[in-house]
């Protein structure tokens, strides 16, 4: 039976990728870390019954995000303090622009885009992940992209040219 040691090994190996997905969903490190922590904690609760931990973690992360935002158990933080100022590497301008733009989307739409374009999941897989029909995912994807274009405005040209 899988034990806590095995779980810790899994968690250490996956905490980085989970955090990056969580950051795209949440737009700031505090909530992203909370989301990862909640996801891993919930996984540990049923660890012995999970056959495919990586897939489970990804799906649980996104579902937890959507549910928590629906419940508004998190208070949205003002974005005056732009996210990830402490991050020394990467492209801070891109991070800020993308976080702002994604933050303008509905949580479910944000989740759809992250799963489709960051996690490279198919429409059918995203539908299963989020408990929606594939047609709904297609519609949401198109709507979310349109919204993203509108929010990014001129920034989109710059970002796409990167």
């Amino acid at each position: 039976m899988k034990g806590i040691t095995e779980f810790e090994e899994f968690a250490r190996a996956r905490v980085g990728p989970l955090y990056r997905t969580a950051w795209l969903l949440c737009g700031d490190r505090h909530h992203a870390e909370d989301l990862v922590q909640d996801t891993l904690a919930n996984m540990l609760k049923v660890w012995g019954r999970i056959d495919t931990p990586e897939a489970y973690a990804r799906t649980a992360l996104v579902r937890t995000f959507v549910s928590q935002r629906r419940r508004r158990s998190w208070s949205e933080r003002p974005t005056a303090d732009l996210p990830e100022q402490v991050q020394a590497s990467g492209d801070p301008d891109l991070r800020i622009a993308l976080a702002r733009a994604l933050g303008e989307l509905l949580p479910l739409d944000r989740a759809v885009l992250v799963l489709r374009y960051f996690e490279d999941r198919s429409v059918e897989q995203v539908a299963l992940d989020l408990g929606k029909k594939p047609s709904a995912i297609t519609t949401r994807t198109a709507r979310a992209l349109e919204r993203l274009r509108a929010v990014l405005g001129d920034d989109a040209i710059h970002l796409i040219a990167l």
Binding site: Y19, L24, L98, D120, L145
Partner: peptide
């Protein structure tokens, strides 16, 4: 072509991001 660029944008934006 935002949809075709979005994966790379997301990847670049999260590159090197690690929990603090």
């Amino acid at each position: 072509n935002l949809d075709s660029k979005l994966p790379e944008l997301m990847r670049q934006a999260t590159e090197d991001l690690e929990p603090e």
